[in-house]
Every structure is written in C-alpha cells, then in structure tokens.
Design a protein around this nucleic acid. Structure first.
Lengths: 222, 222
DNA sequence: GAAATTTTGGAGTGTCAACTCCATTTTGGC
DNA sequence: GCCAAAATGGAGTTGACACTCCAAAATTTC
C-alpha cells in the first residue's frame, strides 16, 4: 500500500512550485532558478524527442544538474512531465497573448493565422504543437495530465471564442452564427493543421484548414 | 561499419511480408498467420498505450508468441513499428472505403461525417486517430516512418478530394471553389477534431470542425 | 519419405533508465 | 556568526526491455 505521506510530499512540492509558501520545502531564489532550468530543458527535449524518448538523464545533462538535484525538485518523472505540461501551456498561450486581444476583427484573426503559419515555417515544420504533441502522447496514459491538457485547450478555445463573441455582440455576425462553435472548429483546424504540417513538412494543410474556417467566418459577416 | 548483408536481410524480410516470393525467407501459410497475429496485437497495444508504451514483451504475450518467433518475423522493434503503420493505414482507410465513393454529394459527405463521429462515440472518445497518434509520436523520430505516414495522409486527402472534384466537374460548385484545398482543410479539421475529442472526452470539437467545413462546402454550391 | 527450410521454445545477456542514499556545501533567518 | 533548512555531488541499486542463441519441432519441396 502506498503511504499517504508520500502523496503529501508530492503535493507540497507542487504547491511549492506555484505560489507563496512559507512552510518547509520552500524554494530559495537559487532553487527556483534550478527548477526552472530543469523544466525548460525537459520541455525542449520532450518537444523534440517526445516524452518517452526523453530520459531523466538527458534532462540532467541539458540542465547541468545532478540526479539528486532533479529528484529534489521532482519526486518522479511523472511530476516533471506534469510541470512540463504546465510550462508549455504558459509558453504557447503566452506567446499568443498579444494577438488574442485582436481576435474580434477579421484583420486580427488574419494576423493570428499568419503568425502561426510563419512560426511553423521558421521551425521548418518540425515538432507540431507543443501542447498537441503532449496531448497525443499522454492522454491515454495519465488521467490527471489529460485533464490539465483539456484545461489548456479550454483556455485556448475561450480566447478565440471571446473575440468571435465580441464580433457577434457588436452585431457584425449574422444572427445564426455560433461564435463558440466557430472557435472550436478553428482550434480543431489549427491542431489538425499543425499535425499535418509536421508529417508533410509543409504548411499547406495548416493554411488550408485555417483559411477555410476564416473564409466561413467572413461569409457570416452581417 | 554495418555489414551490407544485414540491410539485405532486413529488406528481404520486408519484401517477404508483402507480395510474391519464391526465394529464401519466404513465409509459410502458418508463418503468415503468426506474423499477422503479431502485427494486429502490436497495433492494438500501440493504439491504446502508445508506441513507446508498448514493449516487445507485451506484444509477445498478447499475440501468444515467443521472443524468437517475433524476432524471426521482425528484425527489430522498428521493423514491427513500420508494419504497424502499414497495418493501421489499411485498417483506417479500408474501413472508410465504402464511404469514399459517395463523397461527391453533400449527403455522402454527411454520412461520412456521421460515421466518424459515431465511431468515436462508440470508442468513448478514447485513442484518437490510429494514424494521427502514430504520426504525432513517430514523426520526429523516424524519417522513413514519417514518409509512410505522409503517404497515408496523402491517400486520405485524395479520396476526399476525388469526391469534391467530381462535384466541381459536374458544375455543382462555384467556379472559385478549390476542391483540393477544401479536402485538405477537411482532413485537418478531422485530425484536430479527433485529437480534441481524445483530450476532452467528447465529440464536440470533432463535430464542430467537420460541420463548419461542410457548411462552407454547402455555401459553395453553385 | 528425406532433405532443406521454416517455425517455435525458452533460457539467457547486456544495456539503459528510473530512482535511492548519504555525505557535503550553500543559503537564509535571527 | 550560528543554526536549520535547502541545494548539490555522485556513486549505487534495481528492474525492465530490446535483442541473442541454440536446439527442437513442424512444414514444404522434390
């Protein structure tokens, strides 16, 4: 039987990583830096080689930390993976944050589309979506992580929906148009487009998917 | 240095698995059955647990074969993975074959959409797309497998495009409509929808993605 | 039916990766 | 500066997993 305090320890570490903490297991400034270095290294490796294709030892090397250091901050590989999921969620959504505010106009939507396609080109179509890749690899393996990823996609979806709802609220969309459903379709086309981009090594599918949905939104203009 | 005859042996086995062969390393009827049992077992396990999450030993157990048997038919795990990719391609495209012929009408497209959504519901939204999952996990790992998967998606895309092109050829679509691009967008929405379905455990995103593209096609009717 | 070839059984083997342990150094609060 | 807690070093342990080896049984071919 698993001892309860073990779970408790894990939770404390997770809590320690997030917000304020004055109890035991708090992180010093140096500790936070080390932890952040580990997560960033793990995220990069897992993006390029997959979660299963990335060993804890690989992460140690890349982050220049010893085994005891890594296991000081993460009780097990799963905890590190969970941290990577949270990290990539912030990275991906954070990078789009400046564009999210303008998704209530066709121009803003187009700019967002262009930025995404441009980014994939710069990456030479390698790696797909950091969140999508994690979702595909981990969804059937770890229920807690799957829920986290669902939450991440939920945030993404809502950011898009907020823009479309604003357009609808201003009466710019036909009454029949469903902003929430369009947002979900846009996210689906984006994710599928990114996967196909990764496999085909060109951005045609990504551009086609996004453009068709945007064209449909344009056709819904009042 | 790798000996050349080693590659030759691998190639022979791969050839032996496909078509006619009278040379050495040909497969007996029983041998073909065993090989097929191994591939089917591997495909099922890898669909549920991922490629990396499936050990050769797991496959042995599920297929009821010994280690020497498995390595008699597949020189290494990579060869087994390649066989699984080919197998799933045939499974997925084969299952849709009856519906592909009718993709030249809105009713046919709708029936195809309904069948896909229904299948995900029956699977309780678990597992995503067998080809898409493999693509996500293997694209950055194995260039040869990535090319195979690109080919598989190419076949899928062409089956859809054939239907839309037929509609266009009959003059049912507006002159400006681009059947190939619509097909690619439909495939992207499908793949993204399947991924989101897997993560969210509901078919909303899949239905929304496909429906928006189909609505756009409907709007393109002449 | 005998020889050649394929198929199968099952016990290894070596490597690698996750995780542990304990001693030592560094840091932060008072 | 002192003490407690946090951070670090690095060798070690354990188990899993990909892959090997050799001999025996079954099957095909002539």
């Amino acid at each position: 039987m698993e001892p309860f305090f073990f779970c408790y320890t894990v939770d404390m570490k997770n809590i320690a990583s997030n917000g304020a903490n004055n109890g035991p297991n708090r992180l010093t400034k140096k500790g936070k830096e080390t932890r952040a270095r580990i997560v960033a290294a793990a995220a990069e490796l897992m993006f390029g080689n997959g979660v299963a294709g990335t060993s804890v030892e690989d992460v140690q090397r890349k982050a220049s930390v010893s085994a005891s250091q890594l296991y000081h901050y993460f009780s097990e590989k799963r905890a590190l993976i969970a941290a990577v999921v949270a990290y990539q969620t912030e990275q991906v959504l954070g990078a789009q944050e400046p564009l999210f505010g303008r998704l209530d106009t066709l121009e803003g939507l187009q700019a967002w589309r262009d930025a995404i396609v441009q980014l994939q080109l710069e990456r030479q179509c390698q790696g797909g979506c950091p969140i999508g890749s994690l979702a595909s690899e981990l969804s059937e393996t770890d229920a807690a992580v799957r829920a986290e990823l669902a939450e991440a996609f939920g945030r993404w979806e809502h950011a898009i929906a907020a823009g479309l709802r604003a357009m609808a609220a201003r009466g710019e969309l036909r009454p029949g148009a469903n902003p929430d459903r369009l947002a979900l379709a846009l996210l689906a086309a984006l994710q599928g487009g990114l996967l196909l981009t990764q496999v085909r090594r060109d951005t045609e599918a990504l551009a086609a998917g996004l453009d068709v949905i945007l064209a449909h939104i344009r056709a819904q203009l009042a």
